[in-house]
Amino acid sequence: MNWLTLVVLPGAGIALLVVLARWLGFNTQPVLTGPDEARTIAHDALVAFHAEQAAIGADARAALVAGRDGRVALVRPHGDRWIVRVANGARVTRSGDTLTVALDEPLFAPVQLKLATDAAGWAARLEAKP
């Protein structure tokens, strides 16, 4: 065992596989097809979450989903998948019809959503406790 077998060769193997994965096109970004998909994603990810209204960002790469119990789910991409968080109590800043939602969670980047309607209403929902 030496640095060659412990680090250099495995590192080269990893680099080979990662480059190959990119070259084969495994670097897609997910896009929401509509409110129904956002609702389904939120329902599947959160316990006893009954999705009602959903608002999708203009780029279809993030969404807010209101639950029957007052919770608001934030749906955002991670790689080619989605992650979901309950976003009530998040820091929300509004600039016109664009919301920036920042959660108090390490390495969870703030999410920007340009909403077609009712950005103020969604901001109020996010500030409310469920």
Binding site: I14, L17, V18, A21, F26, N27, G79, D80, R81
Partner: peptide
């Protein structure tokens, strides 16, 4: 399915 970022993390 594969995602190159996910695989990079797994292999690392």
């Amino acid at each position: 399915a594969y995602d190159w970022r996910d695989s990079a993390t797994s292999l690392t």
